[in-house]
Design a protein around this nucleic acid. Structure first.
Length: 289
DNA sequence: CGTGGCCCCTGATTGC
DNA sequence: TGCAATCAGGGGCCAC
């Protein structure tokens, strides 16, 4: 489940259902699910067993759970199709169940990492130097996300202007601003009336500020209704869908009328994905088609 | 060095 | 019905 709002929904679910619990045993059912764990599946399982889970944290689309002592954290990324589910111990295995975490208590539930496309995974990492929240060292280069109180807006604007790139690429650059993916990038650009290929160097400070405001607004709105779910692939830890798909203005609305001007929304192939935009509200820059 | 292109994987859907 | 092509909320890696 991809972008910031969906990952935050999962983080909250983990905080409620697994924080404070002690791991009894771990089963890795697919090696790709722990490929970011350098020492391999057996080491991952062995080092997690017996540890107590702290309060889950998130930066952008990454989430991590500090272990007791806080020198080590479980890092998770959902990729395109990953799910973290809290299931009854006896529930039938999901088709794409990759990792199972059993607990040493009698609550009767376990944590499952389910991932159809195996782009996501779990791994164990040391905490970055000076990070009190157990931030794993391997994601120290990921920028703070726009909902983080410590997000440095001034530095963000400067870095954005310095890029020799286009605005949507910059929004998706997780080292510049994290948590934004294809859906919320298109939504924020629509709200700001910006074309996705607008060169970053031509953005004025007010326009850049407006775009950032829309990124925050659309993410907060999505978060308040449980995120965006088109299908059962994108659910919270209890398997429930969010409702923000009903509120999307651009993403997935090809040929449907723009809610501002009625012009049909267009879809263009872009970076092995798609960009959705209103051809009237979001005029392309001179150099682009 | 940044930047852009390609690849990793499985499954649903569409078109011939 | 069958098969190929296309597409999907991500990011790492590697040529330029």
């Amino acid at each position: 489940m991809p972008e910031l709002p969906e990952v935050e929904v999962v983080r909250r679910g983990l905080e409620r259902w697994v924080a404070g619990r002690t791991v009894a045993g771990v089963e890795v059912l697919h090696p790709r699910a722990v490929r970011r764990h350098p020492a391999g599946a057996a080491d991952f399982a062995a080092r997690l067993a017996g540890r107590t889970l702290g309060v889950p944290q998130r930066r952008g689309k990454y989430l991590w759970v500090p272990l007791d002592g806080h020198e080590l954290s479980v890092l998770g990324h959902l990729g395109m199709s990953g799910q973290l589910l809290v299931q009854p111990e006896g529930a039938a295995a999901e088709k794409h169940l990759r990792i199972r975490v059993r607990f040493a208590d009698d609550l009767g539930t376990e944590l499952r990492f389910v991932d159809q496309r195996t782009f996501g995974g779990l791994s164990l990492h040391e905490s970055a130097a000076g990070a009190g929240d157990g931030l794993p060292d391997v994601i120290a280069h990921i920028a703070r996300d726009p909902l983080d109180p410590l997000f440095d807006e001034g530095a963000y604007h400067l870095a954005l202007r310095a890029k020799r790139s286009t605005v949507k690429r910059a929004l998706l650059d997780q080292s510049l601003i994290s948590g934004v993916g294809n859906i919320y990038a298109d939504e924020a650009l629509w709200r700001t009336r910006l074309h996705y290929e607008r060169p970053t160097g031509t953005l004025t400070r007010p326009k850049s500020t407006e775009l950032l405001g829309h990124v925050r607004d659309v993410m907060n709105a999505a978060l308040s209704v449980g995120g965006t779910s088109f299908d059962s692939l994108y659910v919270n830890v209890n398997g429930e869908s969010g409702y923000f798909d009903r509120s999307l203005d651009a993403y997935g609305r090809e040929d449907e009328p723009c809610r501002r001007c009625g012009t049909p929304i267009r879809r263009r192939p872009w970076m092995n994905r798609s960009s959705y935009f209103c051809p009237r509200c979001q005029r392309p820059p001179r150099s682009a088609s």
